[in-house]
Design a protein around this nucleic acid. Structure first.
Length: 370
RNA sequence: GCCCCUGUAGCUUAGUAGGUAGAGCGUGUGGCUGUUAACCACAAGGUCAGCAGAAACGGCUAAACCGUUGCUGAAUUCGAGUCUGCUCGGGGGCG
């Protein structure tokens, strides 16, 4: 369940607490992706040290490999993965954006191909619920029919119909009391469809509402616009989750609009590819400039990596493709984001969020194309 | 001392019947947002080890061209990474 603690006087931002199964997360929060049951290069012990209290795994991917039975036999996702934090599971709707998985959408569900075995199969809202209930995650996501962000209006309208019907079906099939269920509203970049979807999903009996289908190449301004068009029609009392958003400047805008929850692969993916986040903006650690730089990644960061390693060392490890480089980079980026979310929370409580928002927007400027 | 193989980008190398060179890695820079992704994109970087594969004289302002003589075991072409010789560097074999 979700409880609001503080509301910002100058915008729609708020702090709160999400509680589920005796696990708690202070909001606004960001969870890393543990698609296949682990945050790449990072252990649950690392997450505990960093302070990250939630992650999101992918129920569709896990159901294909290793399979629901293996995880069920292990006693559920928490014991199987060794992670005791809040576990969200994504439904598989996002895999419609991945050619290696997606075949087509039908009224009954999504036809996926199994990228490991090549077999095609229909995945319905019922399947998505059964899988997630069996996995035993703390928060399940409804199966949505996610359109391409730049899809034509007719296609988006059609996908909305399905998303809405499936949302109701998910509620009907979902019966696990210890598991929260979040709905997802869509609508691509159409204001009226964003509104219609937000109103519809908001009207159903979900524990939280997610805004989906964004941060897929439309650019910062368009993303923020669409997000605001959705959030206007969501209840204040429900937790709001902006799916897939992780760029600091995106997060700060979303928090100001009233978003409580984020997930993103951005930080760990960037880390493995050599981009590190700092209070001064992002740096590309493999660049020649850091080859002989004995400073910490971020002098203002108190994480394990910044306390113990130099840019030169991490640059070297990354250039050599050493797993340690990926690990230290991932660790730092997650710690940086965790720290940022903490700053956001306390800034809202102290009434200084607008200052932080400006600072982040300045350090993480987005170049908007299109 | 003799014989064989070999020398193309920083590294490893691809290069049809001769037509001024491609790749992978590395380097440089950018991109990554509900991840099958330690990935993707762009760019820079090469005298193809070096040298030689003719010369002299006459005709002509000169070049092209023509003629005569001449060099080599043999040997060019409009054009050589590719053919031939020598030198140098690397590897191997026999004394």
């Amino acid at each position: 369940m979700f409880k609001i603690i503080e509301t910002d006087s100058k915008n729609k931002g708020r702090t709160g607490v999400l509680s589920v199964n005796n696990r708690k997360v202070e909001t606004p929060f960001l969870m890393p992706c543990a698609t296949k049951g682990s945050v790449k290069c990072i252990t649950p012990a690392d997450l505990k040290e960093i302070g990250t209290k939630a992650w999101i795994s992918n129920s569709l991917v896990l159901s294909l490999n290793p399979g629901v039975e293996v995880i069920k036999k292990a006693g559920g996702l928490h014991t199987f993965t060794g992670y005791d934090g809040v576990i969200f599971t994504d439904s598989g709707g996002f895999q419609a954006d991945r050619e290696s998985f997606y075949l087509k959408s039908e009224n009954k569900g999504i036809v996926f191909k199994n990228p490991w075995h090549g077999k095609n199969f229909l995945y319905t809202p019922k399947d998505a619920m059964q899988v997630q209930m069996n996995l035993g995650s703390d928060v399940a996501m409804a199966l949505d029919d996610m359109p391409k962000v730049k899809a034509g209006k007719k296609d988006v309208e059609k996908s909305l119909e399905r998303t809405h019907r499936w949302a109701q079906e998910c509620i009907n099939f979902h019966s696990r009391k210890k598991q929260l269920l979040f709905g997802i509203c869509q609508g691509a970049l159409y204001a009226d469809l964003r509104r219609a979807s937000a109103e519809y999903i908001n009207g159903l009996d979900f524990d939280g509402v997610a805004i989906g289908g964004l941060a897929l190449g439309e650019g910062h301004a368009a993303m923020v616009k669409a997000m605001k068009q959705s959030i206007k029609f969501l209840d204040d009392t429900k937790i709001r989750y902006l799916m897939g958003v992780g760029n600091p400047s995106d997060i700060v805008e979303a928090v100001a609009a009233g978003v409580d929850c984020f997930d993103s692969a951005f930080h760990t993916q960037n880390a493995r590819h050599g981009t590190l986040f700092t209070t001064q903006g992002k740096i590309k650690i493999k660049n020649a400039a850091y080859k002989n730089d004995s400073k910490a990644i971020d002098k203002n960061c108190k994480c394990y990596v910044c306390k113990n390693f130099s840019r030169a060392f991490i640059s070297y490890q990354m250039r050599m493709n050493e797993p340690t480089g990926f690990r230290l980079s991932s660790y730092h980026n997650l710690a940086f984001m965790q720290d940022l979310m903490g700053k956001i929370q306390s800034a809202i409580q102290k009434g200084s969020f607008e200052t932080l928002r400006k600072e982040i927007k300045q350090k993480y400027q987005v170049n908007d194309k299109s």
